[in-house]
Each structure stands twice: as structure tokens, then as C-alpha cells.
Amino acid sequence: MLSQLNSAPLYLICGIIILFVAIVCVIFLVRAYKAGIAIGMDKAKLKRTITSSVTFSILPSVGILLGVIALSGSLGTPWPWLRLSVIGALHYETQVAQAAAEQVGLTSLSAAEMTPEAFSTIALLMSICIMWGMILSFFFNKAYLKKLSGKKTENDSPEVSEGTDENSGKKQGFGDVAMVAMFIGLVSAYIGSYIGGFVSGEGLFTFKGDLTPIIVALVSGLVMSLFIYLSEKKQMVWLESFSIAGSMLIGMLTAIIL
């Protein structure tokens, strides 16, 4: 069965879809770059955005590749490759595949039990469960963003709604503040979950859970502070593009040493 799931036609189908998405990305990239130049943005800034995003994404992408490898044992390589390249989410994918396998009557997600019917059912369920973001974007992205920017014009200071660099004074718009706050809340939730996991993960207040994520987060935060110090105080601005990736790498190395 696994050899069927790894056959050339499946690679071809999944490869074509991934290629399509890659082309879409290139189109958006080129359009945004051209638009940036057209409205007079600094070319160096645009290039730095691309460099920093690429370096930023390499390590998480390798992590995602591990997800492909993990799933390839039961679903073959092409399908997990597609799923994780296109709207996949590492932490959900395995879970959905597992739940889908149970629904079609497999005792677990494994190559030994896989049948063609089970596979196509699991594949369809994996596609359907995660497609809502695209559907919502299709119908509501435009109206939702329009509504948000409309609200801003009413409530906020004019510089926000005008949105040009020249006239944005010292005063921050609340949109920016809210975005930063949301992100602080998001990061707090994750770091809180590591602390909770350590203290109570193996039973309330036993302090027997995994300490590694906390240490990794601390180390990578410390390294980040060093990077920010160097780029802000020592004028090594080029470091900014690599600061997150570098911090992560050192944080992850700590996990190996521990």
C-alpha cells in the first residue's frame, strides 16, 4: 500500500498543486515589491524584509519537514508534503489524520492497516477540516478589512487613517498598540503554558514536567536581547534580519545539550 501512496502519479498531483501555490506566492511577492517601489518605499527596506523573512522561516520550515517525515510512514510522502506545504499546520495535521483514521475504522494511523478507501477518506477529511480560513478569506477578507479601516477613520487620529509616512507624528495609532498587545498576549499564553506544563504537567504542583521549553525560551530571549543590543547600540543593523533565526538556533541547541 505504501508503495502505491508513494507512486509517481501521486507525486505529480501533489507537486502540481504545490507548484501552483509557489507561483501564487511569486506573483504576490513581485506585485508587492513593485507597488512598494511605485509608492516610493526604500528598495533596501523591501529587500531586507525579504531576507529577514527567508532567514526567519528556514528553521520552522525544517521543523515542518519533520512533520512530513513523521506522517510519511503511514500516508506516504506526497500527501503529507502537500498538506504541510498548503494550509497545513504542523500541530494540527497529525491530530486530524489520527482522528480521521479512527473514523474509518483503523485502530491507529499506520501503513499496515491502510487501505485505498481509508487513505482517500483521511485525505479528504484533512482537506475539509482546514479549509475554512480560505473560505472566510474568499468571502470576507475585503469587507472585514474595509470595516476595520473605516472604524479607524472615525475613532482614531487622522494620521492613522491617512496612513502616510510623512505625516505620522509621534503619536501611535491604537491599531498598532492593539497589534502589539495581541502579540504580547499570544506569547504570554504560550510561555505560560510552558510554565504550567513544568509545574503541574505531571500532577498539580509536582514540578516534574518538562523544564526544557522554559529554558529554551529563556536562552533564545537572552540571545535576542544581545542581538537587539548589537543592532541598536552598535549600529550593526544588518544583524536584525538574522536575529530571530540566530536566537532560535542557539535556543534549540540548548535543548540538545540539556
Binding site: I18, V21, A22, C25, V26, F28, L29, R31, A32, Y33, A35, G36, I39, M41, K45, L46, T49, I50, S52, S53, V54, F56, S57, I58, P60, S61, V62, I64, L65, V68, I69, W81, L84, S85, L148, S149, K152, V160, S161, G163, T164, D165, S168, Q172, G173, G175, D176, M179
Partner: peptide, 29 residues
């Protein structure tokens, strides 16, 4: 700043570059 055209362009560039990186890393992998 959020809500500005500059921000729209930067975030589009960033997401596109990030997505392409994942696609390339996974394809090579």
C-alpha cells in the same frame, strides 16, 4: 504602521517570502 499601504506591502512581501521558503525547504527535503 498598521493600516498603512507600506504595512500592507511589507506584510505581503514577508508572507510570500516565508511561504516560498517553506515550499523550497519541503521540496528539497
Amino acid at each position: 504602521k498598521s493600516g498603512t499601504p507600506e504595512n500592507e506591502i511589507i506584510s505581503t512581501l514577508s508572507i510570500a517570502a516565508s511561504s516560498l521558503t517553506t515550499i523550497v525547504v519541503l521540496a528539497l527535503g
